[in-house]
Nucleic acid binder design. Structure first.
Lengths: 189, 189
DNA sequence: ACGAGCATGTAAGCAGTTACATGATTCA
DNA sequence: TGAATCATGTAACTGCTTACATGCTCGT
């Protein structure tokens, strides 16, 4: 149960409803924590019950009402304790790479399609993350930013995401290239 | 339950015992699938029961006996079907990045220690993966390799791992640098 | 004498996924 | 008229983790 820390950490970037959090978990947060909406709603309810977040009901017209969650002092302290303690190793599960590992036994067609789709997704995520980066920096260069910001953390994780997605895109295209090269070298014989 | 596909895919690189598989899951496979030893043993037993792998008991002196598992035709077909079908999105959970997201509220000390440790781990994994790469290529350049190999898949995933670990190392060091810079810029004031 | 490596599991519990449920508004 | 967005959940299930268990050999 350390989804709680990911949720609290996501709230550092400002208050959000459950629904808005699912959006954050689709772009920025996706590069360090994966979770389904149902789990987020459940976790937010638990965090609220334990006093780690506060909830403000916002009544909306022409739209369902929503609860805006934000960090309490207790919640912030929980984050501090978490970051000071031992961290679990990275937990990664990527079916695309599993499929690529099978490149020698499966037909190239489906594999190339998967790689192409993933490269496209990476390109889209990159664009979104670059927009986030620009809005975090808001015109400052890196040196000035570091001196003046209160959002160094989100910037660092945003950069991590940008590097990751760029790398993913490159690798997908490179791998597709080699798979095609092998096909050309093998099939005609 | 798609750990099964990761296990089958790992066996493409040759037969292995449960124990040897846990080693593979610590180095190469770790870059696309994470799993604990107990789960591997349980999965291997299930795969054996379903006929997707065969098991050969190897009697050893001065060491406990082991069961060497290898892919059956049915197992290979299961992999082919998997790679042809739809793939789930990447599932990533990384507590280090969660901690870094909190850079503005936590003390830099613990964070810098975490980043340093992770950078060291990345350096070690990189070294191991480079050895794997060398042994896969075995003297051939990339062009020749692609023409002559039956292990393109393992090479592609190995390269993915190399890129990922190199990127991780760089990011950890860069992030630590910015955190220190912010500390210098903020604390003395 | 002690820890690390080899080798394989069981059992209990928690975290995460999948399927299902609801309903209004806005845009094509 | 139908799909997408906003907004929040419940219930059943399964996959994963944690704790525990065993025992031999090799190197320091």
């Amino acid at each position: 149960m350390s989804l709680r820390h990911a949720v609290l950490a996501a709230l550092i970037q400002g208050e959000a409803s459950g629904y808005e959090l699912t959006k954050r978990f689709d772009v920025g947060v996706a590069n360090f924590w994966h979770s389904r909406p149902q789990q987020l709603y459940a976790e937010l309810a638990r965090l609220h019950g334990e006093g780690l977040v506060r909830a403000v009901e916002v009544v909306q017209e022409s739209r369902p009402n929503k609860r805006l969650y934000s960090l309490t002092d207790t919640g912030t302290r929980a984050l501090v304790d978490f970051a000071a303690g031992p961290l679990r190793p990275t937990n990664l599960r990527d079916e695309l790479t599993v499929a690529v590992q099978c490149a020698d036994v499966v037909e190239p067609g489906a594999l190339l399609a998967h790689l192409g789709r993933r490269a496209d997704e990476a390109r889209e995520k990159l664009a979104a993350l670059r927009r986030t980066e620009t809005s975090i920096l808001s015109g400052r260069d890196e040196e000035e930013f570091v001196r003046t910001t209160g959002h160094l953390g989100p910037y660092l994780t945003c950069r991590r995401g940008i590097r990751y997605e760029a790398d993913t895109q490159e690798w997908c295209e490179w791998a597709a290239g080699l798979i095609r090269a092998k096909e050309r070298a093998t099939r005609p014989s």
